[in-house]
Structures are given as structure tokens and as C-alpha cells.
Computed example of a mutant assay.
Amino acid sequence: MAVDSFRIDIPEPVLDDLRERLAHTRFPDEVEGTGWDYGTNLGYMEELVDYWLNRFDWRAREEELNRFSHFRTDIDGIGIHFIHERARGPDPLPLILTHGWPDSFYRYLNLIPMLTDPARFGGDPADSFDVIVPSMPGYGFSDRPHERGMTSERIAGLWARLMTDVLGYERFAAGGGDIGSGISQLLALRHPDRVVGLHLTDPGFFSLDAGIPDLSENERKYLAAIQELWMQEGAYSMVQSTKPQTLACGLADSPAGLAAWIVEKFRSWSDCGGDIERRFSKDELLTNIMIYWATETIASSVRLYYENVHTLPLDFLNEHIDVPVGMAVFPKDFIPPPREWVERRLNVERWTEMPRGGHFTAMEEPELLAEEIRAFFRPLRTEHRKALEVSG
């Protein structure tokens, strides 16, 4: 399969159109003194839009993104964008990391160098990885699906072909969070002979499945807390799972609307104590938002929720994943699950409760996450090498 180098270069007319729209943003009113209680705060949005229009430098951010090695390939008729950074260390382990929503491949940019070149950050070169970070179909610079059925399971199948058929890795590691956690689990479930191990930052989509008998007290409390949280935070998922196209008509037309929809999640789901810029600068927030805006992928990205709800077979939820799993549980990532809940379905060999951090772990705490990933895969590297020797 052909692999082509790729460079991010958004056409100037797209940026001109964006500036025109930002300059004519029509803001809503709000109830005085409510802060973020009703959703995205008006004062912060006015500040962010002003920064976006007058100070944000997309070309500078584009240059930073292009310092990584970007590629595109075609798998089963779907164009896939991915970063492929080679290790600076002996005998590296290939690692594919999958993002979620409302982030993008940008989630992992701070983490990648820490994994490819651990010595640069005070680590051991023997812990190095070849890191592959693809954009899911419908996200960023990958193609937008125009047919039904692009589920997490189908994406997992694409990733298996990307790693083996395109990049030539017979065996590899996988990891991710949010939707990326579920895709990584499906990749391990369907291709256990190829996946050395999984490193996850959350249990993924099976965390809401309550149809399990003999729950422990911790598990019952966890499920009750998740259900309560979902009543407060789950409206976005219900809309995206049922009427994604209705939502997309507004978000695809208004950059301010798109930013409000995404920024509120970064504030609510991160370990920021209510101050979003404790964790993310305006440049970081807007770079992630620009990846959606410039590629016109908000509609195709939220459709993944619809596809997973309507066409993803759920029989896999009853299957146990035997591939070794490492879990890094961050305290502000929704509701941290109890270990026994995760072990019902995953072969957990390492469980670490992290001291800080939220849902967007690789952006919030890349150093902590890098150390944890290195530690989990360290004993698995020997088994990986032996398996390659046998297959070779």
C-alpha cells in the first residue's frame, strides 16, 4: 500500500473566511452571574473569539504541527492520516495511540517525543517506542466517511491493517483514551496475536453497562455515580448519538459555536479546578478546534457516536480481553472506576492511580503518562522480542 508524506497547509481562503465569520460573531445573552452553570461562559467566549481573530497565529501552529512526520495512506478506500515518529533508542516497540472526541491527533503531540526519545527527558533509551498516531476516519486530515457503518470496530480493523499491512509491524502495542480506549480494546480482542499489550487511561464505552450480576459495593457506587454524572454531562452524547446532523448544521457554520461546544468539555473534563487555562492555553485550545474547523470534520466526527449506537454489535462486551492491560486512572477523568469493575473484562496487569490529571491525560500530564507507559511495557518487551524471533 502506498504511503505518502503529508504536510498540513490550510488554504488561505479558508483562513480569510474564518476571520470574516469571527469578526461578525453574534453572541447570545446570558443570565448575569451564572458563570459556567448554564454551559460555556459568555465572557470567556468573547475573550477567546477576540484572541482567535486578533492574536492567534495559525501559520505558527501549523509549523509546529509539521515538525512531526505526517503521512497518508488508503485502506479499504478510506484515506487515513497518521503521524509516524521513529524511536531514538535500541530495539523500539511499535505503539499506536488513538484519540477520542472532542480532541484529535493533537492530544498526543507533547507525549510523542517522551516516548520516542526517553533519554532526552531523563529516561532510559531502552524504553523507546516507534509511535503511530492516526486520525480516526471523519476526524482531522483523514477522509470523511459518506456511508453508514464506520464504527469503532471497523476503525480497529483499519488500525490492524495500518500497523501490519502498511507499516510492516507484525506485533505492536496499543493505547488510548475516550473513544480511543474502546478502539484499542477491539483491536486487542480481534487481533490478540498482534497486540503485545494495551495501555488505557479509562475503561471506555463498556463502563456504562450495568447488566452484570453480583456487583461489589464499590461497583454499585461507581455505577450510581456514573449515572448521576451522565445526567449532568451526557447531553452532548445523546445529541451526537441521535441527531448529529442537526447539531452539525450549527457547528459547521459558526466557528464561535464550534469553539463553545468543544471548550466547555475541556473545562468540565480536565483537572483545572474550573479555570480552563490552568491546563490549556488559548493556543492549545484553538489549535485543536482549528483541526475541526479547517477540515470541516465536526459533522463526520460526531456521526461516529450515531454509528456506534446504531450499528456497532455489542456482543463483544461479553468477551474477555486476555492481552495484558495497564490502567492509569486519573482522578478527574469522569468517575474513576474500581479495579474489580475493569477486571471483569480486561486482563489488568498494572493499575496505577495517578496523583493528578483529568480526561485529556496526554495533554494535561504528559510526563506522568509517559513514565507510566514506559513502566507498563518494560516487562512486555522481552516477550515481544521472543515472539518476533519465533515468527521470524
Rank of each mutant, 00 (worst) to 15 (best):
G211R: 09
E20D: 10
A2L: 09
P28Y: 02
A252R: 00
P213Q: 08
I321N: 02
T246C: 08
R148H: 15
G43D: 15
E46Y: 06
R303F: 11
W351N: 01
F266N: 03
Y44C: 01
P90L: 01
D103F: 11
R86V: 09
Q232G: 02
S268G: 03
V49D: 02
D283T: 13
S207A: 11
V239P: 13
L18S: 06
T73I: 07
S128Q: 08
A2I: 11
A387K: 02
R26L: 05
E30I: 01
W341Y: 12
G358E: 12
V31A: 06
R19N: 07
D9L: 10
V325N: 03
I8F: 05
G177Y: 06
V348L: 09
L198W: 10
Y51N: 05
L18M: 01
E85K: 00
A328G: 15
P337K: 03
G273Q: 10
P336A: 04
F266D: 00
P192C: 04
D29W: 04
R194Q: 13
W101E: 12
D4E: 13
W36N: 00
I112F: 00
E219W: 06
F121R: 00
A60K: 05
L111T: 03
I373K: 01
S104A: 11
S281P: 10
S181Q: 13
K265R: 12
A248S: 14
W261V: 03
E364F: 09
L186F: 07
S135F: 15
D117A: 06
V239W: 07
A362F: 10
V3P: 12
A259R: 01
T40E: 08
P379W: 14
G326D: 05
L42Q: 08
P134V: 09
A2F: 03
G39F: 09
A174V: 08
A248L: 07
V348E: 12
D165G: 04
T201N: 12
D37Q: 08
I78M: 15
D91G: 01
P331D: 07
A387Y: 03
G182W: 06
P336Y: 05
F377Y: 15
R278Y: 08
S135L: 15
G43C: 02
E383P: 00
H99Q: 14
H84V: 01
S301Q: 10
T246L: 09
L93Y: 07
H99L: 09
E307F: 13
E349K: 07
F105N: 03
R148I: 14
